Amino acid sequence: EVTIKANLIFANGSTQTAEFKGTFEKATSEAYAYADTLKKDNGEYTVDVADKGYTLNIKFAG
């Protein structure tokens, strides 16, 4: 089991951190699915992958 950390960075400057656990593939998939649910209210997003994929910096356009 691994932990994927998602740093969520919103257009208004606020930030939030979420963690997803499971296999690497499952946790990564859940992180992207979570970002997709936030897209409606926060706009499109870009992802900067860090720490060999264990950290995702997800920035929303607003």
Score class of each variant (00 low, 15 high):
1 E>F: 05
1 E>G: 08
1 E>P: 06
1 E>M: 07
2 V>N: 05
3 T>Y: 09
3 T>M: 12
3 T>F: 08
3 T>A: 07
4 I>P: 00
4 I>V: 11
4 I>D: 00
5 K>A: 09
5 K>E: 06
5 K>Y: 14
5 K>P: 01
6 A>G: 04
6 A>D: 01
6 A>P: 00
7 N>E: 06
7 N>V: 14
7 N>D: 03
7 N>Q: 10
7 N>A: 06
7 N>I: 15
8 L>Y: 12
8 L>S: 02
8 L>E: 00
8 L>R: 00
8 L>A: 04
9 I>G: 05
9 I>L: 14
9 I>N: 09
9 I>F: 13
10 F>L: 08
10 F>Q: 03
10 F>M: 10
11 A>W: 09
12 N>R: 08
12 N>D: 11
12 N>S: 12
13 G>N: 10
13 G>P: 01
13 G>Q: 10
13 G>L: 13
14 S>Y: 13
15 T>V: 11
15 T>H: 12
16 Q>Y: 11
16 Q>G: 09
16 Q>C: 05
16 Q>R: 15
17 T>H: 14
17 T>G: 10
17 T>S: 10
18 A>P: 03
18 A>E: 09
19 E>M: 12
19 E>V: 14
19 E>L: 14
19 E>I: 13
20 F>A: 01
20 F>G: 00
20 F>Q: 01
20 F>K: 01
20 F>Y: 08
20 F>E: 00
21 K>G: 07
21 K>N: 14
22 G>L: 01
22 G>N: 05
22 G>V: 01
22 G>F: 02
22 G>M: 02
22 G>W: 02
22 G>I: 01
23 T>V: 15
23 T>N: 12
23 T>G: 06
24 F>D: 02
25 E>Q: 06
25 E>R: 03
25 E>Y: 07
25 E>V: 07
25 E>I: 06
25 E>T: 09
26 K>I: 15
26 K>H: 15
26 K>V: 13
27 A>C: 04
27 A>W: 01
28 T>I: 12
29 S>H: 15
29 S>T: 12
29 S>Q: 14
29 S>D: 11
29 S>A: 13
29 S>Y: 09
30 E>H: 11
30 E>Q: 12
30 E>I: 08
31 A>T: 05
31 A>D: 00
31 A>W: 02
31 A>M: 05
31 A>H: 02
32 Y>R: 08
32 Y>W: 10
33 A>M: 13
33 A>K: 15
33 A>T: 08
34 Y>K: 04
34 Y>M: 10
34 Y>S: 02
35 A>K: 00
36 D>K: 06
36 D>Q: 09
36 D>Y: 05
36 D>R: 05
37 T>Q: 11
37 T>V: 12
37 T>H: 10
38 L>E: 03
38 L>A: 04
38 L>M: 15
38 L>G: 02
38 L>S: 02
38 L>Y: 14
38 L>D: 01
39 K>P: 01
39 K>L: 06
39 K>I: 08
39 K>T: 07
40 K>F: 09
40 K>D: 07
40 K>R: 09
41 D>K: 14
41 D>H: 13
41 D>V: 15
42 N>Q: 11
42 N>H: 15
42 N>G: 06
42 N>D: 06
43 G>S: 03
44 E>K: 08
44 E>V: 12
45 Y>R: 01
45 Y>L: 02
46 T>G: 05
46 T>M: 11
46 T>S: 12
46 T>K: 14
47 V>K: 03
47 V>F: 05
49 V>H: 07
49 V>W: 10
49 V>C: 04
50 A>S: 13
50 A>W: 10
50 A>H: 15
51 D>Q: 05
51 D>H: 07
51 D>K: 04
51 D>A: 06
51 D>Y: 03
51 D>L: 04
52 K>T: 10
52 K>D: 09
52 K>L: 12
52 K>A: 14
53 G>S: 04
54 Y>R: 06
54 Y>F: 14
55 T>D: 02
56 L>N: 01
56 L>C: 01
57 N>V: 11
57 N>Y: 13
57 N>C: 05
57 N>T: 13
58 I>T: 01
58 I>Y: 07
59 K>E: 07
59 K>N: 13
60 F>M: 01
60 F>T: 00
60 F>W: 06
60 F>R: 00
61 A>I: 07
61 A>S: 11
62 G>M: 09
62 G>Y: 11
62 G>H: 11
62 G>T: 12
62 G>Q: 09
